[in-house]
Amino acid sequence: MDTEPTYTIFLGQQRLRTAPLREVLAALKELHRTTRDPLLVFNDHTGRTIDFDLSGTLDEVLAREAPAPARPGPGRPKLGVVSREVSLLPRHWDWLESHPNGASAALRRLIDEARKADPAAERRRMAILPTDRFLTVMGGDLPGAEEASRALYAGDGAAFRSLVQDWPEDIRLHVLHLSAPAFELEAAT
Rank of each mutant, 00 (worst) to 15 (best):
M1N: 11
E4C: 08
Y7H: 14
I9N: 12
P20K: 11
E23M: 13
A26V: 07
L28F: 05
L31K: 05
L31T: 04
T34I: 06
P38H: 07
V41P: 00
F42E: 00
D44W: 05
T46S: 15
T46V: 08
R48P: 00
T49S: 00
D53V: 00
D53T: 01
D53N: 15
L54A: 00
L54D: 00
S55N: 04
E60H: 02
V61H: 00
P69N: 05
A70S: 10
R71W: 08
R71M: 12
G73W: 09
R76I: 14
K78E: 15
L79C: 04
G80E: 12
G80H: 11
R84V: 01
P90V: 03
R91P: 03
H92L: 09
W95M: 12
H99K: 14
P100G: 06
S104Q: 09
A105G: 01
R109D: 04
D112K: 08
A114F: 12
A117P: 13
D118K: 07
A121T: 10
E122W: 06
E122K: 08
R124C: 07
R124E: 14
D132V: 14
F134L: 10
T136L: 05
V137K: 00
M138D: 01
M138T: 11
G139C: 05
G139K: 00
G139L: 02
G140R: 05
G144R: 04
L152G: 08
Y153V: 09
G155R: 02
A158K: 12
F160N: 11
F160G: 11
L163I: 08
L163S: 09
D166L: 09
W167C: 02
E169I: 00
D170M: 04
I171T: 08
L173G: 03
H177N: 11
A180L: 07
A180P: 04
P181T: 03
E184N: 12
E186A: 06
A188S: 13
